[in-house]
Amino acid sequence: MKAILKSPVLAPLAAWLLVALVTAITTPHFLDAGNLSNLALQVSIVAVVAIGSTVVIIGGGIDLSPGSAIALLTMVFAIMVKFAGIPLPVAIVLVILAGAGLGAINGFLTAYLRIPSFITTVAALSAFRGVAFMFNNGSPVFSVDPNLETIFYGTLFGLPLPLYYLVALYTVAWFAMRYTRLGRSIYAIGGNAAAAMLSGLKVKRLQFLTFLIAGVAAALGAILMAARLNSGSPNYGVGLELSAIAAAVIGGASLVGGRGNIVNTAIGALTIVTVQNGLNLNAVPTSAQNVIIGAIIVIAVGIDMWRVELGGVIGALMPNRKNK
C-alpha cells in the first residue's frame, strides 16, 4: 500500500482522472465507445513524439523541432511512396532514418558545437518546415497509398492498432531508461553534466544520442500522421512540440534536467488530449483552446519550479522523489 502511495505515477494519474471526470460530467458523449476510441487515436501521435521530448528533457536539453520535423518527414514519406514508387515497408525504414538524421543535426549542433538546445531546435523548428515547403512546390501530397491508412485505422482484437504501438514503444522506452546504462547515463548528464564528465561518462555523445532518439520518435509520429490522413503536408504538426513537452512536464519531467519518467509522460499526453477532446465536445473554439493549453503548460511548469516553496502537500504528491 505504501509503495502505491509513493509511486511517482500517482500524481499525473490523479490529474488525468480529474480532467476526465470533469469532461465526463460536462459532456454527454465523452464516455461513448466511439469517442474513447477516437481519444486513443488522437493521443497516439502526441504520445509517440513525447517519448523523444522526455528523453531530451531528462538529458538536460529541450527539443522544439518535432512539429516541423513531422511536416518535413510526412512530405518525404508521401513523395517516396507516391512518386518514387518505393514500397511502403522500405519507405517506413527510410523515414525513420531520415528522422534520425534530423535529430543528429540538432544533436551535433548542441552537443559538439555547444549551441544551447533551445536555440538549435528553434532554428530547426523554422528550417525543417521551410525545407518541407520546398517539396512538391509546397503543396500537400494527397491519397498516398490505400494501404497506408491501415497503419492508423486498423484494429487487432477490436482495439485500434496505435494502442499496440504505444504500449510497445512505451515499454521499450521505460525499460531502456530504467534498466540500461544508456538510460541511467542520460539521467546523470541531465542531473549534473560536470559531475557526469568527471565520473567518466561521454557527456557529448550521450547528449547527441538524446536528440537522435527524439528524431526517431518524430519520424514514428510522422508515419502515424501520414497514415491518419493518407497524405503528407508541410502544414502538419504545427504546435505539436508544445503538446509533447507539456505531456512530459505534466508527467513530472523537470526542465532543469535529470528528472522525468517515461510512463508518466504517457499519462501527461493523455491529459493534454483529454482536455482538447473535452473542449471540442463542449464546442469551445480553437482559439480559446489554444489559450487554455497555454495556461496548462504554464501551470505544469510552475508546479515544477515551485516545488520547493509548495513544499509539503504538493511535494508529497509530485513525483520529485526518485523519478525513474
Binding site: 541511467r184 539521467y187 546523470a188 541531465g190 542531473g191 549534473n192 560536470a194 559531475a195 557526469a196 568527471l198 565520473s199 561518462l201 523537470s254 534536467g257 535529470g258 528528472r259 526518485k322 523519478n323
Partner: peptide, 16 residues
Amino acid sequence: FDGLFFNFAGIENMSV
C-alpha cells in the same frame, strides 16, 4: 557543482 547528482539518491550517486 562537480561531484553530486542532485537528481539521484545516494545509491545512484555511488554507482555512477
